[in-house]
Amino acid sequence: MPHSEQFAPLVPPAAAALDGVLARIRDLDATLPPRDGVAVFNRVYLAVTQEAERRAGTGLFTTPGTADTLDVRFAERYLTAVDADVRGRRPPACWRPLLQFRRHPGVRPLQFALAGINAHVGHDLALAVVDACRSLGCEPADLEDEFDRVGDLLVTLEERIGEELTPGPDLLRIADPLTHLLGSWSLERARDATWSTARALWALRRLPDVAGELTDRLDAAVGFAGRMLLTPL
């Protein structure tokens, strides 16, 4: 055995993949202009993804490798969409509103962040569950605990968005149009719908035409919601 292989550190593949994803998110954080809409979402997402890594390292994810795989598949969906836009390719419909309006002066940072979490939870998470099931050779039910833990981290993401990007007590005024806009979207409802969608897509995996149609319609519907969240105020 070559010397380098004999003494190479034993890094679990899933953990190494999560490290790679974090590095790519950090690269975006370092290169995007601070006021860019994607940068706004990316900053908060980076903090929460680092929290996921810390929790994985403390044993809170009880199935070795599984949570990391779901985390990685999940994050890769977001990174692939951003990369497609950079390369002049067409990103998924769910991400297009944020990518198109990222520099609009009439859109507030909080709207950018929520449009990102809408695309990521409403579309990417369901497909990430299917991706992880294929990679691990398991059923969605086997990932339910990990899905719930990822969901808890998403709640942290939503809370952090509110803490960092809420402009102040004036936001609470009933007349503020952003107050009404935020009331039209719910993370809890999005999580519930995502789990149902993931199970449906997995059940339809042997009917690729039907699964593809469902995926396209999901993508379009989430994109429409994102466009509403980015209404200039």
Rank of each mutant, 00 (worst) to 15 (best):
Leu171Asp: 06
Leu110Phe: 03
Phe147His: 04
Cys138Arg: 10
Leu178Thr: 10
Ala67Arg: 00
Ala193Asn: 11
Gly106Ile: 01
Leu233Tyr: 14
Asp29Ile: 00
Glu53Phe: 04
Arg149Lys: 15
Ala17Glu: 08
Ala128Lys: 07
Ile25Cys: 07
Leu110Pro: 00
Leu28Phe: 10
Asp131Ser: 14
Thr62Gly: 01
Ala84Ile: 02
Ala126Ile: 02
Pro105Phe: 00
Phe41Ile: 00
Gly223Ile: 03
Pro12Ile: 01
Arg134Val: 05
Thr49Tyr: 05
Leu79Lys: 14
Arg103Lys: 14
Arg149His: 09
Tyr45Thr: 02
Val86His: 13
His3Arg: 15
Ala75Asp: 06
Leu10Phe: 09
Ala113Trp: 02
Ala67Trp: 02
Arg173Phe: 08
Ser135Thr: 14
Ala75Glu: 05
Ile174Leu: 12
Leu143Met: 04
Pro177Thr: 08
Ala81Gln: 09
Ala203Tyr: 11
Ala221Glu: 14
Arg108Ala: 12
Leu46Ser: 08
Ala128Trp: 03
Pro92Tyr: 01
Asp170Ile: 04
Ala15Asp: 06
Thr63Met: 07
Arg205Ser: 12
Arg77Lys: 15
Gly168Asp: 10
Arg103Asp: 15
Leu201Trp: 07
Asp209Arg: 15
Val86Ser: 11
Leu207Gly: 11
Thr231Ser: 13
Val82Ile: 12
His120Leu: 09
Pro33Met: 01
Asp124His: 13
Leu46Trp: 06
Pro177Asp: 00
Arg77Ala: 10
Ile174Arg: 15
Trp95Ser: 03
Glu213His: 15
